[in-house]
Amino acid sequence: MAKLVFKRPKTLKQVISHYCPGCGHGIIHRLIAEVIEDLDIGEKTIGVPPAGCAVLAYNYIDVDMAEAAHGRATAVATGIKRILPDRIVFAYQGDGDMAAIGTAETIHAANRGENITCIFVNNGVYGMTGGQMAPTTILGQLSTTTPGGRDMARDGGPLDLSEMLALTSGSVYIERTAVNSPKNVRRTKKAIAKAFKSQMANRGFSLVEILSPCPTNWKMSPVDSHRWIDKVAASVFPLRVIKDKTEES
């Protein structure tokens, strides 16, 4: 008898994906769906995807979802969680959303120790609007608004938002992972599970930053995109546990 090695989690809707070939969102959606199923929290989870490529996350992840304005996911999630403290509330945000237009909301939600989980998808560009420079774009990286490459003097350098959030007193768990290899995908799933469990134990603010490929806007093949994450992106944004106070009481 054949052994079942892979199946679609029930929490992932059986629909055709709108994401570009090689995009990391699909992998991350599946990981979230798997974790929700592993923890058996599908009936009490509420997701908050704001504007960006992943605003359509509700087309794929089969839990209650509230769309938020660009940058405001942590504020909306705060409102939901404060009214329903026994539900699991997560925000699913891109780098432009979280580290540029939503910086204030993100830092203050972390600082208040809001007991929510942020999935922070860092692909270094504004994807939905067509590949403009993001706060996380690396120096020298080409984008539609940095045609000569991101320039320190003109644009400033890439923003280490996760490191900044680790400095706030209310954040308990912050880890940076990637989804460019089977090993990294497994690590990412473990990190997402840990963040959700931390929320279930009422620890406070948790965040998983995920370096994710955007072959379309990087103008690379999917394979080259994965290599670029290892060689370049991860050297600026090292994959590591940035803060872990989940074991502390």
Partner: peptide
């Protein structure tokens, strides 16, 4: 629940969240 928000923008979005949750 009372929250002194970091901005007007955050405050109205928190209200949106609370409303979504039924309050």
């Amino acid at each position: 629940t009372f929250i002194q928000a970091e901005s007007e923008l955050a405050a109205i979005n928190m209200v949106i969240g609370a409303s979504i949750a039924g309050a």
